[in-house]
């Protein structure tokens, strides 16, 4: 039942069984709390510091990695330059990297 990884191991079924048990306990705890609220009122409007929120407006996914990109801009710009959009370039990179991995494996 254990999956072995040389120096490591884990048993997904045991984790799953206990996760189900803890979920049941959490669900029971949750059921003891109040469940209701005033549906369809101002209460259910997303909080935006009192500013009016237009219907259907969301924060775009294009900002997801903003902090990461801003922090490591020189690295990101360099990596971005490799992304030419030309399939031949991507395949070339794949072949080169596979060759490098192959060499490393052979030499070790």
């Amino acid at each position: 039942m254990n999956l072995l990884t040389g120096e490591g191991f884990w048993s997904p079924l045991v984790w799953l069984a206990l996760a189900v048990a803890v979920t049941a306990l959490t669900w029971w705890f949750r059921s003891k709390g109040r469940q209701d609220y005033k549906k369809g009122t101002e209460q259910a409007t997303p909080f935006l510091s009192g500013e009016p929120m237009p219907e259907g407006v969301h924060v775009g996914g294009q900002h997801l990695y903003w902090g990461f990109v801003e922090a490591l801009r020189p690295f990101v710009e360099r990596i971005r330059a490799f992304h030419t959009g030309v399939v031949v370039d991507y395949v070339t990179w794949l072949v080169v990297m596979l060759a490098v991995v192959f060499l490393v494996v052979m030499l070790s």
Binding site: Y37, K38, A44, H58
Partner: peptide
């Protein structure tokens, strides 16, 4: 536990 459990509109 005794407070309302509000689910936002969106």
């Amino acid at each position: 536990m005794v407070k309302e459990n509000v689910v936002p509109r969106d």
